[in-house]
Simulated scan of single mutants.
Amino acid sequence: MTSLVVPGQPLGPASAYIPGTGVHIFNNQVIASLVGQVVTVPPASSSSSSSTTSTSTNPTISVVKPALTPEEEATSATLLPDVSSIVLCRITRINARQATASIFVVNDRVVGDEFQGVIRVQDVRLTEIDKVKIFTSFRPGDIVRAKVISLGDQSNYYLSTASNELGVIMANSESGDQMYPINWKEMKSARTGAVEERKVAKPF
């Protein structure tokens, strides 16, 4: 999944790039607006016959959907999560019993249609399950790596983050700042240093 960027992922300082398609500017950072691959176009150069100097601007950075083979194009719209699939999802809402998420990547492939999944409180982690609280594990907007453990009911897939490599991989603080993991249960704001609790995925 390292070949893909996800919505909300910072790509670099705004001062170093010209934003193209699939990105936006937030807090002086270029941020991915969709799931895809980063494409950087070198700055254009111009020269004249009377001068050997050239002028250039910053490179243009964009995010584009991954190119699909004809076979993948034919099946992408019907790509479905299956038991044991590793998915990327965005948390959309939470309550005391579960977190609801929108699945947009299945086994390193962007799905044609987003699917809904739930992470129940008993499926957040392996240890001390009785102490798990959804509100300190996830927040709406978090990007989570999870495993499909059941096809669930007609509207939801059941997901689990009960493994070291599963959990929150990207999150913003309450003030909207990008955070980075400092341990398995805490993330820290890159700007303010404020610490918030999450069920953090171990970085690859």
Rank of each mutant, 00 (worst) to 15 (best):
S3T: 11
L4G: 10
L11C: 08
P13D: 10
P13N: 05
A14F: 00
S15Y: 00
A16T: 10
Y17N: 06
I18E: 09
I18K: 10
T21R: 14
G22K: 07
V23K: 06
V23F: 02
H24C: 07
F26A: 14
V30P: 02
I31M: 14
I31D: 06
V35S: 12
Q37M: 15
V41S: 14
P42V: 11
S45W: 04
S46W: 05
S49H: 10
S56C: 02
N58M: 07
N58F: 02
P59Q: 06
P59V: 12
S62E: 10
A67D: 08
L68P: 03
T69G: 05
E72G: 06
E73S: 12
T75L: 05
T78K: 14
L79F: 03
L79M: 09
L80Y: 05
P81M: 03
D82Y: 08
V83G: 01
V83C: 08
S84P: 00
S85R: 09
C89R: 01
C89K: 02
I91D: 02
R93G: 00
R93I: 03
I94F: 00
I94L: 07
N95S: 10
A96F: 07
A96H: 13
R97L: 12
T100D: 08
A101N: 09
I103Y: 07
I103M: 05
D108K: 11
R109G: 00
V110L: 11
G112I: 11
D113S: 13
D113K: 13
E114D: 10
F115C: 08
G117R: 02
G117N: 10
V118D: 01
V121P: 00
D123S: 12
V124N: 04
D130I: 02
V132W: 01
I134P: 03
T136S: 11
R139F: 06
P140K: 13
P140I: 04
P140R: 06
G141F: 07
D142G: 07
I143K: 00
V144Q: 02
V148E: 06
G152E: 04
G152T: 06
D153W: 06
Q154D: 15
Q154R: 14
Q154I: 09
S155I: 08
N156D: 10
N156V: 04
Y157A: 02
Y158P: 00
Y158K: 09
L159G: 03
S160M: 10
S160T: 15
A162F: 01
A162E: 02
E165H: 14
E165Q: 12
M170Y: 13
N172R: 15
S173T: 15
Q178S: 15
Q178F: 13
Y180A: 09
K185V: 09
K185C: 06
E186V: 03
M187V: 10
M187I: 10
A190W: 01
G193N: 11
G193T: 12
G193K: 06
E197Q: 15
K199V: 04
K202E: 04
K202L: 14
P203V: 13
F204W: 08
